[in-house]
Amino acid sequence: MLALMTTYSPADVRAVCKPRDAWWTVLLVDPIACRLVLFLANRTSVTPNQITAVAFLMGMCAAACFATGERGYLALGALFFHLGFIADCVDGKLARVKGNGTVFGLWLDFILDQVRLVVCSFALAFGLVHSTGRPEMAYLAGVIIALDLARYLNGPQMAKVRRTMRYRLMKAMSEIGKEDRGGLDRSVAGIGHDITGEPDDGGGDAAEGKQRKGRIRRRVRKRAVHRGIHGGIAARFPWYHRVRERLLAHRIRTHLISGIEYQMAVFVVAPLMGPTAVPYMVGAFGTLLMFFESLLVYKLWISTRDFGKEMRRLEAQRRSRAEEQLVR
Rank of each mutant, 00 (worst) to 15 (best):
L296P: 01
T276H: 12
C89N: 15
T7F: 11
Q317D: 14
R162E: 13
G232N: 06
D21V: 00
L57A: 14
G231W: 10
L83I: 04
M170H: 14
F292Q: 01
T102S: 15
I229W: 04
W301P: 00
L36Y: 00
G133H: 05
R181V: 12
R151Y: 15
R219T: 01
F39C: 09
A138K: 05
A55G: 11
V90F: 05
S9T: 11
I191P: 04
I32C: 05
F110N: 09
T164C: 06
R312T: 10
T196L: 15
V103Y: 14
Q325Y: 03
A277L: 04
V269I: 09
L36P: 01
W239A: 10
L169S: 02
L247Q: 13
A206R: 14
H82S: 05
T47L: 10
F81T: 01
A206T: 14
S9A: 00
T7S: 12
Q114H: 15
V143Y: 05
T276Y: 15
L79Y: 10
A235C: 11
M264C: 08
N154Y: 00
R328V: 15
C17V: 01
D30C: 08
S45L: 13
E175D: 09
C65V: 07
K98T: 11
Y240L: 14
N100E: 01
R215F: 14
G99L: 09
S131F: 04
S303E: 15
S174K: 13
A277K: 02
M290S: 06
G69Y: 05
V161N: 02
S9K: 03
E245G: 03
R35S: 01
L106I: 08
R20L: 09
R168P: 02
G283N: 07
G105H: 08
F292K: 03
G142F: 02
E324D: 10
C120K: 03
F66A: 05
A316L: 09
L79T: 13
I145D: 07
V220W: 07
V16K: 02
P279F: 09
M5G: 04
A15L: 03
P199M: 08
I257C: 00
R227S: 10
A75Q: 07
R151S: 14
D180A: 13
F56R: 00
V269F: 06
